[in-house]
Structures are given as C-alpha cells and as structure tokens.
Nucleic acid binder design. Structure first.
Length: 445
RNA sequence: CGGGGCGUGGCGCAGCCUGGUAGCGCGGCGGUUUUGGGUACCGUAGGUCGUAGGUUCGAAUCCUAUCGCCCCGACCA
C-alpha cells in the first residue's frame, strides 16, 4: 500500500478519553474511532488487523476439525425464555422490539441458537461428535464500557459449540479446544496462560480461561512461574488423539494458575516460593464443559447406540477476537507506539523514502515496493511528501516490524537501512540484500 | 448502579470564580524555507462554546433540566 493513497488518520496528541496504552495507541494509529461508549468503527488499519486475527482463528479452528458457520446478531427472545436465560441474563442483554412488538435481542452469546439448530437436525449418535463455530459480532450492554476494544459493548468473538454423545467425548473436545487455543495464541505471538476459571452465567462443570499477562489486566492472577516456560512450539498435534490432547492439557494445567475468582491460598502455598507469581491478566478466551445444561432444558437429544434417547453433552468456547487486539498492544508497545508481532502486523515492512521525488531514492523505493509485494509481504510505502521525522514517527506508531529507510545519503554508498522496530537495531545493506533479508525473515513466520 | 470529573474549530487545552458576544498550541490549506527523528517563518480557512429552558439590556461565563463522554468502585468475554 502506498501511504499517499491509504486512509491512515494518525493523531499526534493523545486523545483525552484514552487511559491505557492500547486504547490510546489504537486511536492515535488511526485503527479505530469511537462511535458511542464501547462501540467503535474499525478504520482500515484496525480492520486489517482484525481480519488477520480472524483468519488465524479460522485456520486453527479448522485445523482442529471444527466446522465454520455464521449465526445472526439478532435473536428471538423465545429461545432464551426456553433455556431460562432471558430473565437470568439481566441488563447486559440488549433487548429490542421489532415492528410487530416481538421481543428480539442482540446476541451476547449463542448457546440457545446453536442448540436449536442442532436439535432440529441431529437425532442420532451417528452424527456425533460435532463442533460448530462462528465468528460474529456480539453485544453486551456493559454498565461501564472502558479501555477501548478491551471492554467494549460491541465486540467480535469466535464462539464454538461441541456436541457429544457422552461425557468422555465432550471432555476430549474440551482438551482439544485447549490445545487448539494454545496454538492460536502462540501463532499471534502471545503468551496466554490457561487458568482454572469460574463458569459464570454460562454455567457448567469445567472451565479454563486464557490470560495474557499485562499490568493493565482486569483480573488478578496467581501462578507458578513454570507455566510461562511452557510452549507448544512447532510440535505436531493430532487433534483426534485423545491421549495427546489429554497429555497437553495436563502439561499446561498442572502447574498452579488461577484468577482471583478461583484462587486457593492453601494450594498456592505449595508452589515453591521462588516460583510463586502474582500479576494481572487480560482474559482473551475461555472454554467450558457444561454437560447437559442446555440440552436438557432445550431437549437436544439423540438416540444412543443402545437405542435410548439421551441429552447430548456440550461445551462452548470463546475467543475475544477484537479484544485480542487490545491485549496484543498492551503486551507489545513502547513509548513510540505499537510493536506488532510479525504474524499479526497489518503491514510487515515499511518503506520510508527520505527524499520523495528524489532521482536516487524514488526508483529504489519503487523496486523495493514491487519486490516486497511479489514476495507477498504487504509493504507500506510512505511516499508522502513529508519530512523524515514525520515518516519515522508514523512508522513507529503503527508498528511495522521492519523498516527499510531509503535516503540520498545512504544511496551514495549504495546502501539502505533495515531497522527492527522492536530492538531498534539497524543494518546497512544494498537494496537487494534488504529485500532478501525481509523475505527470509518472513518465510519463517 | 454508587462516587468523582469533563463537554469551547479535526486533536489537546485556556477563558467561567468576578457576565460585555471567543483565544492558544498542534493539525489543515497557500507560500517561503528546510531536508536522516513530528523544521522555522509568513499568510489563511475553520467554532450558533453538548442541548433546551430561565435570569439579565447583554450568557461560553449565573440558575434549572436534559443528553453525552471519561475516571474510581461494584459487575463482566
């Protein structure tokens, strides 16, 4: 993308309404604009990151064998009356009436809707197991939205639902989701720790939530520092393997890690003192196993192998996709701006032309721009007629992981400068070498 | 929902106490200048001071109501 043709309204000053880094930087970098409290427009740069994260989630879900679909944002109240949650959910549910006076709601989650779809079409254990998911906008009418997209009212979320004929199958689905979520966060360059959690309004028997450590996190967390050393890395995972998923589940959930809601001082005390950690965390996902809670109330039953009609065992799982952007920035920024992990950066490489219109610089920038595009690296070429400082400041703010600086001074010696946003380290090399360097760096991502 | 605060040009703010019809910085536009980290100077455009009532000869300023937004807490993906 040529910056001169893009829409990137960056702000030089900090907006008064933003208290934390991610909110401030998303506004300043021209990623979002607030429309109402907790409701945001996603400008091109923010939208690009949102789509990138959505794609990663889709890929990892499907890798785990889950089936994508799409349910509407608006739901009828009837289903929620059937499950009993229409009254239980309270003020956070946005209720709407249509022209006929029928009660609708802007969905805060989709257990009822998916269960209704399931029960109308699935009647035999032979159709199971099944895990369906979608990525859709949700709405929860928070009393006090804050922190930008971290605690918005409208938010973009992946939610999935597994259906199994028995508890054992559902528990495998639970473990599989945990593994799949670990992979998803790792791909985004995030360290998210699964912690034993409360089941809240979803209800159920087991739940883990995934927390990204950050000072601005909403939850207080207690953990054994051994969990932060764990990583899936590039190990091959067979998502159908009950043993392997169970093994990874145990590996990641055996060290003590809990939020304040489930914290147990006595258990925590057994962690070696030098490994005890207290910190704050941002919740970026949660998985539940709730057995037959909804299938009983909503009569989602199948014929078992024995010919008996049994309620299905279910679980649900969510990843806050829009919130993840806030979490990513909280975990990856400095005083100049955002520092995107390479896998989620909206633009992988920024090209800064220090002398726009220059006889030496323009052709080199064009060559790099075309070359990086051919390599699929989605470069951002700052071809504006601006001063060097302005261009550097913009690049730093929006967080391109790599920057190629092309100036007359360097070109006299035949070199451009390749700079890493995170470390600030620069290296001079020929334009061709810079191109090679970038393609090599990103071939590994 | 309890407590606190703020609404004045695109952004950040001053003016309000002690009423006299709006100002600064950044940004925009046009120039000159400069050219490796938000350059300097000149010129210029842009605001019915959140909204509605009231008091007054006169209201951004005082009073009342209302809407919106932010912060702390409780609550929550």
């Amino acid at each position: 993308m040529r910056l001169s043709r893009y829409f990137l309204p960056v702000l030089k000053d900090n907006p008064a309404e933003a208290a934390i880094a991610s909110h401030r930087l998303m506004l300043r970098a021209g990623m979002i604009r607030q429309s109402a409290a907790g409701i945001y427009s996603w400008l091109p740069l923010g939208f690009k990151v949102l789509r990138t994260l959505e794609n990663i989630v889709h890929e990892e879900q499907q890798r785990a064998g889950h089936i994508p679909m799409l349910m509407p944002t608006l739901q009828t109240a009837d289903l929620w009356r059937e499950s009993g949650r229409y009254d239980d959910y309270g003020e956070e549910m946005l209720r709407i009436k249509d022209r006929h006076g029928r009660d609708l709601l802007y969905g805060p989650t989709n257990e009822e809707l998916i269960t209704d779809i399931f029960r109308n079409s699935v009647h035999s254990y032979k159709s199971l197991p099944l895990t369906l998911y979608h990525i859709q906008w949700k709405f929860r009418d928070e009393r006090r939205p804050r922190f930008g997209v971290m605690r918005g009212r409208e938010f973009f979320m992946k939610d999935g639902y597994n259906f199994n004929v028995d508890e054992a199958g559902a528990l495998h689905a639970y473990n599989r989701h945990l593994v799949s979520y670990l992979r998803t966060y790792e791909r985004m360059g995030l360290k998210a720790i699964p912690m034993q959690a409360d089941t809240g309004p979803i209800g159920g028997e087991h739940s883990h939530e995934f927390l990204v450590l950050a000072d601005t996190g909403e939850s207080e967390v207690f953990y054994d520092s051994a969990v932060t050393d764990l990583s899936l890395g590039d190990r091959a995972v067979d998502f159908d393997s009950v043993e392997q998923c169970q093994g990874i589940f145990e590996e990641f959930t055996t060290p003590y890690a809990r939020t304040d809601e489930t914290h147990d001082e006595a258990l925590f005390a057994k962690v070696p003192a030098e490994r005890q950690r207290t910190a704050r965390g941002i919740e970026v996902g949660q998985i539940f196993y709730f057995g037959t809670k909804y299938s009983e109330s909503m009569k989602a039953k199948v014929s078992s192998p024995e010919g008996k009609e049994v309620p299905v065992h279910m679980g649900s799982h969510g990843i806050g996709v829009s919130r993840l952007i806030g979490a990513l920035i909280e975990a990856n920024h400095d005083d100049k701006g955002i520092i995107w992990p390479e896998s989620v950066a909206p633009f992988k490489v920024g090209i800064v032309n220090l002398k726009q219109g220059g006889e030496a610089t323009d052709p080199v920038c064009e060559m790099l721009y075309q070359g990086l595009q051919l390599c699929g690296l989605d470069p951002l070429y700052d071809d504006r007629d601006e001063r060097a400082g302005t261009k550097f400041a913009s690049m730093d703010l929006i967080g391109c992981p790599w920057r190629i600086t092309v100036g007359p001074r360097g070109l006299k010696n035949g070199v451009v400068e390749l700079t890493n946003r995170r470390t600030g380290e620069s290296e001079e090399m020929s334009p061709e070498a810079a191109l090679d360097c970038c393609t090599q760096i990103f071939s590994a991502v």
